[in-house]
Design a protein around this nucleic acid. Structure first.
Lengths: 192, 192
DNA sequence: TTTGTACATGTACAAACGTACACGAAAGGT
DNA sequence: ACCTTTCGTGTACGTTTGTACATGTACAAA
């Protein structure tokens, strides 16, 4: 009854251990923000001893960076799913509106993304990770709308997600569809 | 040579003192984020003794709240200027694009606003202050575009400002104008 | 002048923090 | 069997933190 269940990965598993810590940190960021992160809280959440967090990461800043990059990787992953859904959609505006509404239902997701945006605005080394979502979304849309329009749409969607952070009632699908089809209408529709 | 220059307001000026502290805190938030705030840093920035910050504010949370509400008040003030410029504009899209570009030049402004958004998403009591900017912008546009379109435009602008936080090259005025006029085109143009 | 009240501040303290590091345990080569 | 290297952890230390509070100071009323 001494070495009871350690959370994510048992001992002697370097990479798995590291990942467990990163995931716990990411979860903690979703819950109480980057500023709430401490070595001790992360260690407790990952169910590893305090020493582990300093063993795998030179710094707390290093840990935070790893956690935020993990979050960025998750958003990239969400982007891939988005790409699949969008590829077989005839009505781009409606499909995008639908997907955005789906995203609105998961506030933690864009709260952490926003946390990443803010952290990156202070620390330039985080910018590549922070750009992953926006640029990925842009690249995904650009073939069908042209680059400039794709950027505008991405900005609009990010704005909508931001809006949802502080309003009980997010923008409804109808409004989204109207706005998105208006934006899409401006595209050249033939990239080059 | 004992009581040399105190920063914002000399002693025995309760409301002025409080304001000096709040302003120093707001400046500090712009510089290093809400998480960087400590009683000591604020006191040093406002050039007041440590005791003052605990005298005027029961809590550090209380101080943060006051600072964020000050920031919200500033954004409201910027909104009033915006309203003046917009009232006498014939081409709404172009005028809005121009104003947005002007805002892009002052990153600190929307960085703090974003800081407020994020803080409000964690602490509901900050939501009214956080909504000031978005809802104010919406109310400002609604008479000319209808409510739904106004919301869409506000979301778009917030998204553009967010984008600028992590990209060296913000969206250019031409792109903004195109997108904005497309969005405006969807409005009923006669609010009931 | 005395007294009362609001304003103001320096200091002190317990808690929480990041981090270093000595030490132990496991694994692999010989 | 032994040794070497990597992996892992508990503990301890110096700092910074939020906050309390005893003490003082200015001003108005009496």
């Amino acid at each position: 009854m001494s070495d009871a269940g350690r959370g994510a990965s048992s001992r002697r598993d370097p990479s798995g251990r590291r990942r467990a810590i990163v995931e716990a940190a990411a979860g903690l960021i979703a819950g109480e923000g980057v500023s709430g992160l401490t070595h001790r809280k992360v260690a407790a959440a990952a169910d590893v001893p305090l020493g582990s967090t300093t063993y795998y990461f030179t710094d707390l800043a290093d840990l935070v960076q790893a956690a935020l990059e993990h979050i960025a990787a998750l958003s990239r992953q969400g982007l891939d799913e988005m790409a699949r859904d969008l590829r077989q959609a005839t009505d781009l505006a409606a499909a995008l509106a639908e997907l955005t509404t789906a995203y609105l239902a998961a506030p933690q997701r864009h709260r952490t993304q926003d946390e990443l945006y803010l952290a990156a605005s202070h620390r330039p080394e985080l910018r590549p990770a922070a750009r992953l979502w926006f640029d990925g979304l842009t690249d995904l849309l650009a073939p069908r709308t042209g680059h400039a329009t794709a950027q505008a749409i991405a900005a609009f969607i990010d704005g909508v997600l931001l809006h949802a952070l502080i309003h009980d009632q997010p923008l409804d699908t109808a409004t989204l569809t109207t706005a998105l089809s208006a934006l899409i209408g401006t595209g050249d529709h033939a990239p080059r």
